[in-house]
Design a protein around this nucleic acid. Sequence first.
DNA 1: TACGGTCTGGACCATGGAGTCCAATCGACT
DNA 2: AGTCGATTGGACTCCATGGTCCAGACCGTA
Lengths: 201, 201
Amino acid sequence: MSTLTAKGQATRDRIVEATADRILAAGIGATSLDDVRADTTTSKSQLFHYFPGGKAELVRAVVALQGERVLDAQRPALAALDSLEAWEAWRAALLAHYAAQHGWGCPIGSLAAEAAGTDAELAEQIDDYLRTWRGELQAGLERMAAAGKLRDDAPPPERLAAALFAQLQGGLLLTRTEQALWPLEAALDGALVQLRAALAS
Amino acid sequence: MSTLTAKGQATRDRIVEATADRILAAGIGATSLDDVRADTTTSKSQLFHYFPGGKAELVRAVVALQGERVLDAQRPALAALDSLEAWEAWRAALLAHYAAQHGWGCPIGSLAAEAAGTDAELAEQIDDYLRTWRGELQAGLERMAAAGKLRDDAPPPERLAAALFAQLQGGLLLTRTEQALWPLEAALDGALVQLRAALAS
DNA sequence: TACGGTCTGGACCATGGAGTCCAATCGACT
DNA sequence: AGTCGATTGGACTCCATGGTCCAGACCGTA
């Protein structure tokens, strides 16, 4: 792993991406290394060549990739969540991302439950990821609070961020069970209603 | 299976309950029949005696039990969700239930992702369950709308119910990752904010 | 006490999937 | 061409786990 040829890097990437697709569609447990092998036309030895830690390491790479993708999709909006318009832009970015995603993959949050039982380290990684994501929302709210844009009787940024983030995650969950985008839309609308209610008049 | 002695019924119940605990703590995939056997001091033959369909049938029984439990916890409040006070009572009932639950089991919604990959029938059962739960909220909102208690420009009951339900499910997700109750509290607070915003003045 | 059904124990089988190993090939650099 | 490491193929081992089977214990009834 010290040195990776361009070819090797390409193979590695191919493996991670294909595995990500499968895991998002079927879950971790339902994704076998043989599946991955078939999807990528690779051999067992390659899987373990690029991921000496075996399936656990591969899955961790997948989670990191997918996490980065989702964060990237909100990136410009996420950095400047300090006005109602910015939050509306954030909402739009999320909807665009999940609408474009082929299939209705399970949200990362749903993997947490599965990971908790099988791989404590992975569970920790997912929890950390969710915390940083939520932290971004909280940071935006804190900037707004500091600028006096929030009502005095509004919930503190930490709680408000948790509520908004929960709204989002729940929306993703329903979007998956319903195989449709509208629950996520409805959820994000609800999040904005909450935000407006917290805005200083 | 046709006839169950009191003793047999007791054993069966013991199996389902112990399995429920394990599944809620570790997920479906991380719960093996041998684990269940050990937890309940039963033998393989008993497991298959009471659940001829094997693990799949057992898991379905667990989901049914847990679903019923959660619904029961909200029962009185759920039947009369037609005023702000009723929704506040509902919120309190949920918090009480999840606070009392030992450990921070994964919400049923989180099992959906795992089930989707391994047992389509189970996934369907879980989806149905989530739909009826959400349907209860929607029914309450529809009664309120019919009684003119909702603003004309409020979202339609279906979307509002989805938003509130998503808020709840997301709250459960965070409560698990944080191993604390406050995210669920914050989420339910957010749900009530949304509800108030939809109330006719 | 004999009988029939339910209940229980635990050995046994089958299989899928993770992980190992070695030999063969490729490709860059000398 | 020669060499060395990166890359690849695929057979093989090992084991966890779901599922089968049968013999025996329990228990109510005739």
